[in-house]
């Protein structure tokens, strides 16, 4: 019996990374800023996108890719704001992969300014998959607790910005805002932190301005 050992040193997510790099290159060539929204279910991703849409729609072209295990509900909410939206139904998969985004790539208008990708609600698996985004944005809502950053290290260390949402609920919760901010920044000192309430429509202007300044940088 002849045996052989071969050295491979290949990344297991290499094929996803390759597709993501290709998507990123094409988007950036067209001057489109892609933003990947990551959070646990119910943190307010869609509500934030609705608020962002209200601000961007008069001046910019935005679109949304919605990732969910089931239903077209989120895409319908976005379309109700007059924004084009594609729903990816993963049928059980707990995250989006670059090839899923790649499949609808040809339908994305070339004159778009911002493309938001709302990932499947889950703070674990989506963090391992690059979708070709320019900005990864993790959302933490106050009812989840201020100790979450260190419990979900990958989501917080791979993100560019952190949105702490549902800040209007702080009076009713044992949520220490400064502690949450400190936990996240200790793991990722480069994180840009935004404090919002999608429900009360507060803190959204700052977040939108961050996306727009990133768009300007991309097009420079």
């Amino acid at each position: 019996m002849k045996k052989k050992e071969i050295l491979v040193l290949e990344e297991l997510l290499g094929s996803n990374k390759k597709i993501a790099a290709d998507i990123r290159e094409k988007l950036e060539e067209k001057g489109i800023l892609a933003i990947n929204f990551l959070s646990s279910p119910g943190a307010g991703k869609t509500s934030l996108l609705e608020r962002i849409a209200e601000r961007l729609k008069p001046h910019y072209k935005m679109a949304v890719i919605e990732g969910d295990i089931e239903t077209e509900r989120d895409a319908e909410r976005i379309r109700a704001k007059g924004i084009p939206a594609w729903q990816i139904i993963t049928g059980g998969a707990c995250h989006l992969e670059a090839k899923m985004v790649g499949k609808i790539f040809s339908e994305i208008p070339a004159d778009l300014d911002l493309l938001f990708i709302e990932n499947v609600g889950n703070l674990v698996c989506p963090a391992s998959y690059d979708l070709g985004e320019s900005i990864r944005c993790v959302i933490l809502s106050t009812p989840e607790g201020d100790d979450k950053p260190k419990k979900y290290p990958k989501a917080f260390t791979t993100s560019d910005c952190l949105v702490i949402n549902k800040i209007d609920l702080i009076p009713f919760l044992p949520f220490d805002l400064e502690y949450a901010r400190k936990e996240a920044l200790e793991m990722n000192p480069k994180l840009k932190v935004f404090i919002t309430s999608a429900l009360k429509d507060s803190g959204i202007d700052e977040l939108v301005e961050y996306f727009l300044s990133s768009l300007r940088n991309l097009r420079q």
Binding site: K2, K3, I6, V8, L9, S128
Partner: peptide, 14 residues
């Protein structure tokens, strides 16, 4: 941060 396939040991046909 790595997730790598480092090596494979196999039995060859000949």
């Amino acid at each position: 941060t790595e997730l790598l396939l480092e090596k494979i040991e196999m039995e060859l046909t000949s």
